[in-house]
Structure formats: C-alpha cells, structure tokens
Nucleic acid binder design. Structure first.
Ligand SMILES: Nc1ncnc2c1ncn2[C@@H]1O[C@H](COP(=O)(O)OP(=O)(O)OP(=O)(O)O)[C@@H](O)[C@H]1O
Length: 1029
DNA sequence: GCGTGATTGTTTTTT
DNA sequence: ACAATCACGC
C-alpha cells in the first residue's frame, strides 16, 4: 500500500499528489519543506450539502417555480434583479448529478420497512463516480474548467485506477455494530446494529453467517466473533459519523451509495410502524411528540441524534410537512453534516431535499443574505475570519493609538467575540466599562465595526449576533421566519451559546415546536461561549416541555461504558444520568505506556495495524489527540507503517498565504472596497508599494471615511505619496478594475475567475519566475484551490463566487474522498458525535489530557471541561479502546515529563488491560533502557495487549539533540529527587516552597516551579531544589 | 522599498 | 519548535 496522508482542510496527501502528477515531488522530498510551506496536494471536493441536495440520476431538474421554496422567494427576486450575483443559498435546488443508473443488489425493501438511519448497506458498484463525473466533463457538456487545474483534475480522474464493480452480497450489510455481528439484520427491515438486540426480531442470516445462530449470550459476542465482515467486501461498514469524514461528506450527493436510492419512490416512508421498529420506547415518544417543546436529555450513544433524524422523518412523512419548514441546527459542521447524512439515508434524497440542516453560523449567513437589506449589508458580504479580524483591528489600533502592550489585539477581539455571543453592541460595552481597558475595548470595537461596514464584511460572531438581533427586533422578519419554520430541532444543545439560544427562542412560533437534544456531560465548548445552562433555561422557558431521558447506550461495550461512566461520575456539576448498555463486555481497554511521543506513535500505528488485521476497516478506526500539535509524530508513524490516514483540522489549507492571497483577490472582485483584502494583495506580487505608502494611504482613507479603493478611483491620494508610488497604485487599480470587468461575466464559475486572477495579477508569473520548491508547492496549492472551486461549481446548485468564499470561510469545504478508506486522525473536539469501532487516544497524561486545569490556581471549570472531553473521547469507541501515555513528551520545543492522566487513574482497574502507574519512575527503580517499555505494568495485562518490539535503532528523539532524554534516568539518579514530575512539592532556598509545573530537559535538568507565595513560576535548575514529602 | 536576521511571543479545543 | 513581527542595513 502506498503511504498516504492528507490533511483537511489543509490536506497533505502524498499519494494523491502522485496520482495527480502535478509534480513529481516525492512525499519525502516534499516533507522536508513542509515546515516552511507544507506541500499540499489538496484535493478538495465540494462536499454534499443538504442545502443543495442532488437529484437522482435522470431526474429532471425540478421546474424553477417548484424549487423556489417559500422562504427564499424574496431572495430569488433579488437574484433576478441582480443577475447572477451572489445568490447561492436557496433551498431545494439541485443540479442533476450525472451518474450511472444503478441496479441494486438488495432484497426488496417492503413497504413500511424503515431504512436504518445509521446503517450502511451494500451498494452496487458502478464505475467510480468521481471518474465518471470527470469523464463527462471531458465530454464537454460543461465548459472546460480553468486552465491547468481542470486539466489536472480530469487527467487525474482518468488516471485513477478504476476498480471493477464489486459484487455485493445480496443482503443489507448492517453497520458492524458491536451487536448483531453475526445475525445479519433482517433483510426485510434493513436494520442495523441493534438488530441483535431485539429478540423478537427475525434474523435472517447473511450468507456469511448462515448457520451461526445468534449466540445466546450477548456478552461473549464481541470478543468471540471471529466473523468480522471483511472490509473489502462491505464498504458499507461505515462508521456512522465517521462515514462522513471518510466519505468526505459527499454521501448526500451519491445516491448510488444508498440502497434506498433506487428511485425516490422506493425509499420507504417512515410510518409509525417503522418508527416503532427503529426506536426504543422513550425514543419513540420523543419522535412522535412532534408538537410542543421537547428536551431529550441523555448520555453518549443513547440515540439522541437518532431521535432527531427519525423525528424529522416522521414530520416529513407522516405529517406531510414540506421540508423547507423544518430547521435542524447544531454548532459544528460535522454534527450538521451528520444529521444531514443520516436523514438523507433514512428518508431518501428526494424527500430530504429542501430541509434546512445547517450550523448556526451557516444559518446566520444564509438568512442575513436573505434579509440583507434589513441590516444594511450587501448581499454578498464577506465573512471575515480570524486573520481578517486581526488585520482590521491592527488598523483600528493604529488609528486610535492603542498600545498593543497595553491591550493586545487578541484580547480586544476576544472581548468583542464574547460580547457578540451575548448579542451586545459597542455601546453596551462602553456603558458597562469600568477600567480604561474596558473603555479601550469598547472604543476599538466601535471603530472595528465601522471598518467592517465600510468593507462590506461581517465577522464570525456577527453571523450569530446580527441574526439574533434581527429576529428579535424586526417583527416582519420574525414573523416570516416563524411562519416558515414550523419545526425546529437542535442537536448538541449543550454547546449552544446565548446568541444561539435566543435566536431559537425568537424563531419559534406560537406552536413552539422546538426540540432540543443534548447531554450536559458532553459540553466541551464553554471556552467558546457555550453555556450548558441553556438546558436549564430551556426548561425554565418552556416549562411544559416534555423531557425525555434515554438511558440505554447502543454504541459501546460494557467496559468502555464503565470507563466513561467512571470518569464522568467525578464531574462536579452535572445533572447525572444513568447510562447502561446491553452490549457485550468487550475487550479490556488497552494501556500503552511509552517512552516518548515517537514511540507512542509507533505503538499506535502498530495497534492500528493489528486492528486492521482483525478486519476492522480503516474508516472505523480513529486516533484522537487533545491538540493539533500532537499530530505530527502520529502522521509520521502512520506514513511509516503504510497506513492510509486522514487528518482533520490543524494548519488549514485555506490559511496558507498563497491561498489567502488568491481568495483576497477574489473578494476584491466582488467588492473592491474590502480594504482588508486590498491591503493584503496590493503588493503581492511585489509592485513596489511599500509600507510607508500604504500607511499613508490607509490613514488618508480613514480620515476621509472611505475605502482605499475609492481613493484610488478618485485619485485622492495624500500629498506625501510620491510619484512612483502613485503610479504603482494606479497600476494596481487598473489591474483589479480589468479583472473585475472580465470576471463580471463569470461569477457563476468561480474557478474561472480564480484562474483569471491567478494569471492576470502576475501571481502565476511570480511563482514561475523563482522556481524553488516552495514556489512549486505554492503553485500546486493554488491549483488545488482552483480545483476545489471547480468542484464546488460542479456540485452546487447555483454556484457563485460569493457562495464559494462563504463555504471556505465557514469551513464547509470537505476533503476529497478517495474511495480508499482511511484511518482518521483528529482532535477530540472534532470527534464529538462520531463513533468508531476502534479508538486510540494519545497522550493521556496530566498536562496533555487534561491539558488545562492541572496548574495550581487554574479555574476548576477548566478541569471540568477536560473531564467532559475525556468522556466524549472514551464514548466514541464502540468496541476497542486504547489509551497511551508517555514518559517523555516533546511538545512546543520542550521535553516534558508528565504523569499518566488522572482520568486513567479513575477508571476501574478491571476494565483496563494493565495497571496505570501513578508516576513515571517507581521508587528506587531506575528504569533502564531495555525495560523502558515495561514500566508500570506494561500493556500485557488482559487480552489483546501486545508489545511493540523495540526499535533496534535508537529513535531520533534519543539522538544527540535530546541527550537528556537519553540519559534521563541517569540524571535523575544523580539527583536525590528521583524522577521529577509535575505536581511535586519542592523547596528553594530563596523562593520557599512551590510545586513543580513542568519538567524540562536540556543540557541540564530544569524544572518550572510555581511558588504560591510569589504568585509566580520560575524556571530553575533542579539541583537547587529540595524535594519535599 | 526590500530583504535579512534577530527577537518575541505563542500553542487548546471551532465557527 | 515555529511563526509572526521587528530592527536594521542596503
Ligand atoms: N433504538 C436503537 N436501536 C438500535 N440502535 C440504536 C438505537 N438508538 C441508537 N442506536 C445506535 O446507537 C448509536 C448512537 O446513537 P446516536 O449517535 O444517535 O447517539 P447520541 O445520543 O447522539 O450520541 P452522542 O451523544 O455520543 O452523539 C448509533 O449507532 C445509533 O444508530
């Protein structure tokens, strides 16, 4: 297998690079340059959006009149008025997807047979769709894409191996849930994982399992079942949510993947019987009680999302409510995507079309565009990301002469963001400002808003606060929305903030059909302003709400659940809930003690390999870490082990300078008054427009209360701008003007505009002139960007440049999915809501996970959130969970020595494969090199533990650059304080007593010590410290 | 105006 | 470790 990896949105994808033949840089070669400029052979593809659901093959595009759904009529009028301008969000449009008609290797789904929400099914395999699409592209029904990018795309597609269609067993492959591993679900029912749980339910045997009666003891099942379904034959064994990740969110666009998609008519309606089959009694109640307020309050894996999806299905199918009257929202893109996907699966693409399923932010963007004239925004307003915000704020600070030392820009922006979460305005902040600091913030905010307005932009926070304010204050908007949205549903409600909750409350109409679903134990976004108390507020505000509790977990093994429950039970404030499972005991949770993070990564890679060897498909395996910075060694190890993996988040593709440059030009195409974008690119490529000139022009623009562009247009430049600079500025003005004129006719083809920009601005030339590897990479990245635009244009209903830019800033762009399954690497935060058969959690150490809250005097709430995060992490696992921790960890340029996570110590020993050592060095025992892998009690313990053979060659971490790691034990032996570690009490002759915060290694052993009486942390040589107690 | 080398922070998690 | 910013010299 080819090593491959990808990062999304900033994808690293070596294999793909090769396929694309964009350039021959070998991954290894490329990697060398990653530091400076990660080589990104990003293959972004426009992901499926429920907002723009596809149409089945051959389905005629619905007539405009019908597609133009109520709520968007107004927007549509605008659209007409303004031509093709920036109208990209409308319900219910679909571009016909060209794909082969499929035959289904499925038993007939009888009427009334509810499709399994989470269940994947065997699918017929036609030619690869991606390839097909491209072939058709070549066929020329579409205009040729932009230059090289499109060409590469096409060629790449052509070159990609075309696997022959696989034969699928003629039975619905249920998801390989922990239960039901043998009893194939009833064909009749098309049921999923829970099939095995229902004694009453018939169990027609799958071919493979014929003759294996369901074992009487569920217990034994997990461990015993040797009959894992071979992954290769059952691609349908997708992780429920992981599927989205790995299948790259295009599922909704891929009807052929769904067995339900033979034709819309064959997607069975979700009638009461179907519901009753698919849901347990409390779930059923929650799904059926469509009217009035409802709170589903339940632990992880209890089927909350399932309730939402079936409830929507029920509203659609039984109550015949048109889809555009149903709004389902959550906080993260992933959760939204998940709902969307599941809904499409159970209800079919056709009936799901037009549902409003989105994140709060995307909803904000969509509605603000629809009502833009009520808020004084342009319809195609830009959305500013962090960097843009910072650059606006820098300018404001210059203007107001605020000293960054006194008030860091990030502090100001943070305060503003928080204020926006509370739907406040600058005046409110000013009114409650006490200190000069507060006042400066309020002043800065005011100026900041002026700049946004002038630039025709909003920031992330605005998407929420402006919409909330609008709905709360503008009666006509409110009425319109209340009229439109008859049913509101919120997933992950515990992670909503004030603005979001208020938005919901304002949008709900007199019927109050608001269903919220959440789990206080999974509240992990407090740091972003989310407030779990919204659950309480909901009960207060809707006292007659039906509260449904779900207590059965359908996801995890007994052991995993016990571990999770143990960790969360120690949480300070929680409502408390029961959560049990009828699933099997499962394998012990495997402990992987490691020397350092490289070894840890190798162990994990090894573990992943064995898991794969056991037949668990790659897409059912995930590695979690607390922070992105941990991903690198993991990636390296995966690559070294030839494990296909995919990584999420981290350094984003769209944050790369060259990409942002092009995007900035594109924003200028839409709105040249966008000073932020202008300043970004005015001298890129270099045009001899220097800082001095720009400072002057900027100041002038501020003084004139106008945009830089307008100054250029009128020639109203400050006197002290010299002739050369003037000329350069005029040149830039002309250039952008020309581009804009040319682009005007192709705003519906973003990639062409992108290509135009790339060429005309001289950006392409700049990269070609100096052909070093970095520039090649940049070039490649831009090609990828163009490729993603092209994809977007192909798959969006109504592609617009503004629509593309919005997708990018809202992070909705998802990575291209090769069909090859991949192991997922992601942060725990991104994992929320997903589930995997096998999960590896890295760095379970105090100081890494929990990452925060371990220091003296830190907010206890931080630790609480870490705990909940640990709960989330553990509960993602269905069958197998491995946790690792290291003795030495190099992170942020330091080597730290952390004890194993306190959360591990709280897990009952009987669910673990071994003992968790309390600290790294046992009393008196100086770990020697050869025993370094067996400190603690090693991973031997219960079944499933494996030992990773020691690398005969010393790992790089132990080579010269980190001699202390090598000699660690020796140094430690030299010092009476055996084994320094965090949390130790020490005395220093000057500073008194303190607590060890961090153990650093270098030429000498240093530690960071916090001295409470000083209120400060000092870095000291360990030899000056005396160990207490 | 531009390129360089030094310095200085900064590194959680997401929209 | 690393990026972004700054100071300096051409
Ligand atoms: N009644 C049921 N019968 C069979 N399977 C079920 C049932 N309810 C839920 N499941 C399955 O259990 C798993 C967890 O469900 P779901 O994701 O909806 O839970 P959740 O409460 O949203 O979890 P989380 O809070 O962790 O996001 C899914 O695979 C789902 O299909």
């Amino acid at each position: 297998m080819e090593p491959q990896g990808s990062r999304h949105p900033g994808l690293r994808h070596a294999l793909h690079r090769r396929r694309l033949r964009l350039h021959p840089t070998a991954p290894r070669h490329a990697r060398r340059h990653r530091r400076a400029l990660p080589p990104v052979a990003l293959r972004l593809r426009r992901a499926g959006r429920a907002l723009h659901p596809p149409q089945p093959p051959g389905a005629p595009r619905r007539p405009l009149a019908r597609r133009r759904l109520r709520g968007d009529q107004e927007a549509h009028r605008h659209h007409r008025r303004r031509g093709l301008r920036a109208l990209h969000q409308r319900a219910g449009h679909a571009r016909p997807l060209r794909r082969p008609s499929r035959r289904l290797g499925l038993p007939h789904l009888g009427a009334g047979t509810a499709p399994q929400e989470g269940a994947a099914r065997p699918l017929p395999r036609g030619p690869r769709r991606g390839a097909l699409r491209h072939l058709q592209l070549l066929g020329g029904s579409r205009r040729p894409g932009p230059g090289a990018a499109a060409g590469h795309h096409r060629q790449a597609a052509l070159r990609r191996p075309q696997r022959p269609g696989h034969r699928r067993p003629h039975r619905p492959a249920h998801r390989a849930g922990n239960q039901a591993l043998r009893g194939a679900p009833g064909a009749r029912r098309g049921a999923g994982a829970e099939a095995g749980l229902r004694a009453a339910h018939p169990h027609p045997q799958g071919r493979r399992h014929r003759g294996h009666p369901r074992p009487p003891h569920r217990h034994a099942r997990l461990r015993q079942d040797p009959h894992r379904i071979a992954p290769a034959r059952v691609p349908a064994l997708l992780p429920r949510r992981g599927a989205r990740l790995l299948d790259h969110g295009r599922r909704p666009l891929r009807p052929r993947r769904s067995p339900l998609r033979r034709s819309p008519l064959e997607t069975p309606l979700i009638d009461r019987d179907a519901l009753a089959r698919e849901l347990n009694p409390p779930q059923l109640e929650a799904a059926l009680r469509t009217d009035g307020p409802l709170l589903v309050f339940a632990g992880a894996g209890s089927g909350k999302t399932r309730v939402i999806t079936f409830r929507v299905a029920h509203i659609l199918d039984e109550k015949n409510i048109p889809p555009w009257r149903i709004l389902a929202v959550t906080f993260t893109n992933k959760a939204a995507q998940e709902m969307r996907e599941r809904l499409h699966r159970i209800v079919g693409h056709d009936r799901a079309r037009g549902l409003w399923i989105s994140t709060f932010h995307a909803l904000g963007a969509r509605l603000l565009r629809r009502f833009h004239e009520r808020t004084g925004l342009r319809q195609d307003f830009a959305i500013y990301d962090d960097g843009d915000q910072r650059s606006v704020m820098n300018r404001v600070f210059d203007e107001l002469k605020i000293d960054e030392k006194f008030l860091p820009v990030r502090t100001a922006l943070g305060a503003i963001d928080r204020a926006k979460q509370e739907v406040l305005e600058p005046d409110d902040l000013m009114a409650r400002a006490v200190t000069l600091h507060d006042k400066q913030i309020a002043r800065a905010w005011e100026a900041y808003e002026k700049h946004l307005a002038k630039n025709g932009a909003v920031d992330f926070g605005d998407l929420l606060s402006r919409l909330t304010r609008l709905v709360e204050r503008d009666a006509s908007v409110r009425e319109e929305l209340q009229e439109q949205f008859q049913y509101l549903l919120v997933d992950e409600f515990q992670d909503t903030n004030n603005a979001q909750y208020r938005m919901l409350r304002a949008m709900v109409n007199e019927h109050r059909n608001l269903c919220v679903v959440g789990d206080d134990d999974q509240a992990i976004y407090r740091w972003r302003g989310a407030d779990v108390r919204n659950i309480q507020y909901f009960k207060r505000d809707f006292p007659d709400a039906l509260v449904v509790k779900l207590e059965q977990n359908y996801r995890s093994t007994q052991r995993i659940l016990r571990a999770a429950n143990a960790v969360i039970s120690k949480a300070q404030q929680r409502e408390g809930k029961t959560l049990f499972t009828r699933n099997g005991e499962g394998a012990p949770i495997e402990l992987l003690p490691c020397e350092d993070e490289r070894e840890e990564a190798r162990h994990i890679a090894h573990g992943v390999k064995s898991t794969l060897a056991r037949g668990v498909p790659a897409r059912e395996i995930a590695v979690f870490y607390r922070i992105h910075a941990q991903s690198r060694p993991l990636e390296d190890a995966m690559r070294a082990a030839n494990i296909p993996y995919m990584i999420y988040g981290g350094m984003r593709f769209y944050e790369r300078a060259e990409v942002k440059d092009i995007l900035a030009y594109l924003r200028m195409v839409l709105n040249p008054n966008d000073d932020v974008s202008l300043l970004r690119v005015v001298n890129t490529p270099a045009r001899k427009i220097g800082k001095t000139t720009l400072d002057r022009v900027t100041a002038h623009a501020t003084a004139r209360q106008t945009s830089i562009w307008k100054l250029l247009a009128t020639g109203d430049l400050p006197d002290d701008v010299g002739a050369a600079a003037r000329k350069a500025l005029t040149g830039f003005y002309r250039l952008v003007g020309e581009i804009r004129r040319e682009a005007a006719a192709m705003l519906d083809r973003p990639a062409e505009v992108g290509s135009l920009v790339f060429q005309k601005t001289g950006y392409a030339r700049m990269l070609e002139d100096n052909k070093d590897v970095e520039n090649e990479t940049r070039h490649e990245n831009i090609q990828e960007l163009l490729g993603s635009m092209h994809e977007y244009a192909q798959e969006a209903d109504e592609p617009t440049l503004s629509g593309y830019l919005e997708r990018v800033t809202l992070n909705e762009e998802t990575p291209e999915g090769e069909d090859s399954p991949k192991v997922s690497l992601m942060t725990v935060h991104s994992a929320k809501g997903l589930e995997f058969r096998a999960v590896f959690i890295a760095a379970m150490e105090d100081g890494m996970f929990p990452y925060k809250g371990t220091e003296l005097g830190s907010d206890p709430e931080e630790m609480e959130e870490e705990r909940r995060l640990a709960y989330v992490a553990i509960t993602r696992a269905r069958e197998q969970l491995s946790v690792s921790f290291t003795r030495f960890r190099q992170i942020f340029g330091q080597t730290r020595i952390n004890p194993p996570s306190r959360f591990l110590l709280e897990i009952p020993p009987d669910v673990l494969s071994g003992k968790v050592p309390r600290r790294h060095f046992g009393e008196g025992s100086t770990p020697s090199r050869e025993s370094s892998n067996t400190w603690g009690s090693g991973g031997g313990g219960g079944g499933g533990g494996y030992r990773v053979e020691r690398d005969p060659v010393p790992s790089r971490a132990r080579e010269p650059e980190a001699p202390v790691v090598n000699d660690g034990p020796v140094l430690v032996r030299d010092n009476p304080a055996v084994g320094w570690q965090r949390g130790m009490r020490v005395r220093h002759m000057k500073f008194g007593t303190g607590t060890v915060k961090t153990v650093l290694t270098g030429a000498e052993l240093k530690v960071e010590v916090y001295f409470p009486n000083l209120g400060a942390t000092k870095t000291l040589l360990a030899e000056y410290l005396q160990l207490l107690g």
